[in-house]
């Protein structure tokens, strides 16, 4: 019983974490048809910025609870600085190119940002820590389930994931700009002809996606030691989630994250030996059964 509950809780926590990162990836893909490898760099940038901001906050001797605000500030700052540079400076000149070329453009970007991070923050692992060794991770206290202790910070992750998912769904389906965006997704050229400012739509989408990546990184920062190369580890997991769910699908990302989270937690508890490739195994199995992922719309055939 304990193990079952543990798998459930661990799985949900891990899924929430994955979802926050993957949802931005699927959003950018859905709108812009770019599988953004640099999403991993934005995640890493968010984490590094969060460490710097939170530690600066602690260094000023302000109330520890304020460090949570610093995490959000870091994510917003990263999105506002890097999204315009990347989208306006580079990607906008590449639209219309082959999907694969775009993937590689973001891969080149990923390599550049990787060294950029190294130049700015160095190679030492960094972590968030206050003067009395407190971290935002332990500040919120713990809760107990079936004899296991979990920090309440995990609940925060779950909460943020749910809020992010619902907010995006609401914005897409219930607001005017969301509906315009759906039109852009459906047919970029016709939307442009009808007077929708597609360039701005792309810019806003990319900024939101970048913010979600950076937020994922910022929320991860207090739980890990922030180290160069952390983006590379995450991006493949996020790809798996998005592909399992169906590229560009919001509910798909949620379901994909849940599946990956549960499978991973179950593997750790019942068969630690196979944890390493369980995720890819699920990805292959899902793609074999549903070639375009779990949630995928029908495509227009062009003759």
């Amino acid at each position: 019983m304990t193990e079952f509950v543990a798998v459930l809780v661990d799985g949900i926590v891990y899924a929430s974490w994955l979802f926050i990162i993957a949802v931005g990836l699927t959003l950018i893909y859905g709108v812009m048809k770019i599988l953004n490898i640099a999403h991993g760099s934005l995640y890493a940038l968010g984490a590094f910025a969060a460490v710097s901001c939170a530690n600066a906050w602690f260094a000023q001797g302000y109330a520890a609870m304020g460090s949570f605000a610093m995490l959000a500030v870091a994510a917003i700052a990263v999105a506002l600085v890097f999204a315009p540079i990347i989208e306006r400076g580079l990607l906008r000149h590449m639209y219309g190119k082959d999907e694969v070329v775009l993937v590689l453009v973001t891969y080149a970007l990923f390599l550049i940002l990787e060294d950029f991070i190294k130049l700015v923050w160095g190679v030492d692992p960094l972590f968030v820590q206050g003067p009395n060794y407190e971290t935002p991770y332990s500040l919120l206290g713990n809760f107990d389930v079936a004899g296991l202790t979990y920090p309440n910070y995990n609940l925060l992750l779950v909460g943020v994931a749910i809020v992010a998912g619902l907010a995006l769904a609401w914005a897409l389906n219930r607001t005017r700009s969301g509906k315009l965006l759906l039109a852009v997704i459906h047919d970029r050229e016709v939307s442009a002809a009808l007077g929708i400012n597609v360039g701005r739509m792309y810019f806003v989408t990319f900024t939101i996606g970048a913010f979600l990546a950076a937020l994922g990184g910022a929320l991860t920062a207090p739980t890990v030691s922030v180290v160069t190369g952390m983006g590379a580890e995450v991006i493949v997991m996020a790809f798996a989630v998005v592909v399992i769910g169906g590229l560009g699908s919001l509910p798909g990302a949620a379901l994909g994250a849940l599946i990956v989270g549960m499978v991973r937690a179950a593997a750790v508890h019942y068969a630690p030996e196979v944890e390493l490739f369980s995720v890819y195994f699920v990805m292959a199995a899902v793609l074999i059964a549903r070639p375009k992922g779990l949630f995928s719309g029908a495509e227009v055939r062009k003759i």
């Binding site: 891990y14 739980t223 952390m230 580890e233 508890h269």
Partner: peptide
């Protein structure tokens, strides 16, 4: 390089 050890810690 996994980074997230929640499940491992529970186990």
């Amino acid at each position: 390089g996994a980074g997230q050890y929640g499940s491992e810690i529970s186990a």
